[in-house]
Design a protein around this nucleic acid. Sequence first.
DNA 1: CTAATTGCAAAAGCTTTGCAGCGCA
DNA 2: TGCGCTGCAAAGCTTTTGCAATTAG
Lengths: 136, 136
Amino acid sequence: MSPDNKELKEVGLKATHPRIKILQVLEEESQHHLSADDIYRRLHERGMDVGIATVYRVLTQFETAGLVCRHSFDAGPALYELNRGDHHDHMVCVDTAEVVEFQSDEIETIQRRIAAEKGFDLIGHSLVLYVKPNNK
Amino acid sequence: MSPDNKELKEVGLKATHPRIKILQVLEEESQHHLSADDIYRRLHERGMDVGIATVYRVLTQFETAGLVCRHSFDAGPALYELNRGDHHDHMVCVDTAEVVEFQSDEIETIQRRIAAEKGFDLIGHSLVLYVKPNNK
DNA sequence: CTAATTGCAAAAGCTTTGCAGCGCA
DNA sequence: TGCGCTGCAAAGCTTTTGCAATTAG
């Protein structure tokens, strides 16, 4: 059994053709952050005629199962990326739309403290930095 | 001339009825964070039959003029609030949808440093904490 | 075999746009 | 008066949903 099949079974999803292929696209793309439509078009380029509704449904299931992370960067479509277990945030270049990942324990700690100060427990967060190439 | 008229003129917008009323709703609402549709409904409650298209157009103009800030909290409609000149971020309670504002120079400083480390200048950011009431 | 999954098409939710008429400066 | 602004309706874009047909285990 292929590793993808196994991954799907482990989270309780049938190893169907569309699900396996969507997982492959997410694994193989050098561009880690893909919209549902990006994935839909990649599949069709490869001769897989999967419906866009299926792409959305599968991505939602994958997110619930913890296989992918979904991000809403401002307006526009949501972007999905494989969950590699390493939590990170993103900076988006306003010129090129390039997405760079980063990680900061420092910020996470401060967030938890701020939430506590207001009487809350931190469940999660969404942090996006909008940046421009540093031209020096 | 009313203060609202003045505010509008100062940013180069004609002091029209819809614009004045939308500004008033934003000023008077104790709930600072309103969607275009929230504002639309508040206006109609007050007998002002402004079109929803106008609400969107005016809010976009207000944002461009720096009069309001627009936030995309995850999915759902964008929320607008009056720009009182004090930059702040938000935490949203996942139980009650309550929105609490907070400010952290510490986080801003770290953000600038992280952007610089990756070769970028920080232009802006979006930070939302998702929280739950701290039940102790 | 049978419950889960899929594709299609239609609809939903938010936002923008074209256009003819109205209103502020 | 003239250009900007407005309301309406239609369209755009992303995402969800109903349903009959298909498929995995």
